[in-house]
Amino acid sequence: MEAPSERDGFDAGRATDHIASAVTRPHYAGPTPPRGAATARSGWRRNRDTIAFLLFFASVVVGILGLAVLLVDVLSRGLPWLDWDFINNFPSRHAEESGVKAALWGTIWIMFLTALFTIPLGISTAIYLEEFAADNWRNRIIRVNIANLAGVPSIIYGLLGLAVFVQWWGLGRSVIAGALTMTLLILPVVIIASQEAIKSVPQEFRDGAYALGATKWQVSKRIVLPLAVPGIMSGVILALSRAIGEAAPMITISALVFLTFTPSGPTDRFTVLPIQIFNWVGLPQDDFRGVAAAGIIVLLVVLLAMNSLAIFVRNKFQKRY
């Protein structure tokens, strides 16, 4: 099914266009490559090319379609249950009286404390690794270790928190034990994001400060940190938004409780949104599926808000050099 002009063989003009456009692009994403005589002779190879293209494209469509179906499924089930009472009610045995108040406040508490612990720890570690640490075996261990920690399953952190914070430190199944566990879980992500932000500060700025006689700490404090803060903050917000959706490590800390109060201090018991949703999914009555979907909508709205905030912070404050 090809045009007669193409069957004549190699089209020099098209080929050079193609090469020129490929050179200016970072990725090899050119239009149809030059069609040699061999291709033109073999219809099957051309058809196979088209079929393969459709299959590769279909894989992308499967991913996007999966996302769309998931969102439609959740929205169609959950929206009828979503109203102001749902935000303001405690969980109940009756589906129509159930709400996310305890879980929402628990999530806010956990996230607030986690941010409080994670931000100084993560930024300090990143500054140390990028600005101070020499390339010796001790610091290489720290780097490799952080990469490996990022791959440890979240429920393992839950077991760690249960053994260390809940039992050894005697914090009990409290908000503070949950927040400390969550801190350890997202710390590698925050460190890696902060390192990237610090790396993007141009070396000339540091050299200028050193030339004026600044010490390493002065350079870090007054030059690197202020310039890296937007990147660090967007990384921190993204890490926190991942933490909000984490149920597994919180289940081992809080256990699956049915709470009808909001935490009033860091030593109170708590539940979080994903645990509450998990509870509802597990209930036999069909109505609770709808309640669970409504809970998911609340969770997704919180996530969307945080991701938008991260993108806003990055675009608004980050400079390109």
């Binding site: 994903p274 669970a292 979907a293």
Partner: peptide
């Protein structure tokens, strides 16, 4: 768009 998939909480996937 594909990377949104990676950001959805796993409890939502379970549901």
């Amino acid at each position: 768009v594909l990377e949104v998939l990676a950001g959805i909480p796993t409890v939502v996937y379970g549901f």
